[in-house]
Design a protein around this nucleic acid. Structure first.
Lengths: 143, 143
DNA sequence: GAAAATTATGTTTTCAAAGACTTGTGAATA
DNA sequence: TATTCACAAGTCTTTGAAAACATAATTTTC
């Protein structure tokens, strides 16, 4: 469904949100361990995302990644968009470039509903809110 | 959503279904043109699928690909399964191997619904039935 | 023998992952 | 207060593997 990159990004963001909600910062190594991902790979992903403002970072001693208040209100949808673009939300199911309402592919109309549902789920899932479920250990992030 | 391979496969199958519904056979070159796909690539895909019984083929002059009655009743879901496997229908949205009902990832329950809807759409879409819409030119297959 | 699929092999591109090196920053220290 | 040091993110380059696409030889069948 999502790219590997995107999967790691979502897991990392939720993890960071949980670990830094008291104003702390968290290093890349701990993140990689926490979500069980390749260290260098997740590092690059997070650097890209911090450039785009999806999360915040600080260099030097006591530095690390963290999420400010605004970032916590972000939805998973904005993370997915930043990483994978919005082809998941609007691209044709059969890969047809010109697929549209007037020139639909054979499954165009049915797919529309699924996409809409998916988008809504991701829009509703705010990064900050998901940390609560994590703390109550209702859900987990390691593979 | 699907792999390129899978997209080509679906388009090809629908195209073949339409072109061979009167008992004809259709060659690989015409298929490639008809769905605007790389010729050698779609050839390999169709050979795999014919081995698996998803469609039929005949060698020699007047040979080509075609669909028998049983194959026409197949759903798009079985094509997707043959090509991409069923990871789309059951894999975790965040790529977690151990994600389950008892140890769900943060979006597990929401995703379940989307997957279920997707599966139902693909199960309901029979290859043979989609050709009617094509003939009425309500839909098209070229990119 | 010619037309078709089939098989085998090779190339290119993209994605996932790893490594080495650079830059910035807070804190100790002299 | 200026210097230096260590720590942490940032950048650049490379490797590995899989997916996407191409070429050539082979087999089957009319």
């Amino acid at each position: 469904m999502f790219s590997k990159t995107c999967e790691y990004a979502i897991r990392a963001l939720i993890f960071i949100a949980q670990k830094t909600k008291d104003g702390d910062r968290i290093g890349i190594k701990e993140i990689a361990k926490g979500i069980d991902s390749p260290e260098h790979f997740i590092a690059k992903i997070l650097q890209d995302l911090s450039k785009k403002g999806i999360l915040q970072s600080a260099k030097g001693p006591t530095g690390g990644f963290y999420l400010d208040k605004a970032s916590r209100k972000q939805s998973l949808a904005s993370i997915v968009r930043a990483v994978d673009g919005d082809k998941i939300f609007q691209g044709c199911g059969l890969g047809l470039k010109q697929c549209s309402e007037t020139k639909p592919c054979p499954i165009h109309h049915e797919f529309k509903k699924v996409r809409k549902d998916l988008l809504q789920i991701l829009e509703n899932a705010k990064v900050g809110a998901l940390t609560d479920a994590l703390e109550n250990s209702m859900v987990f992030l390691k593979r």
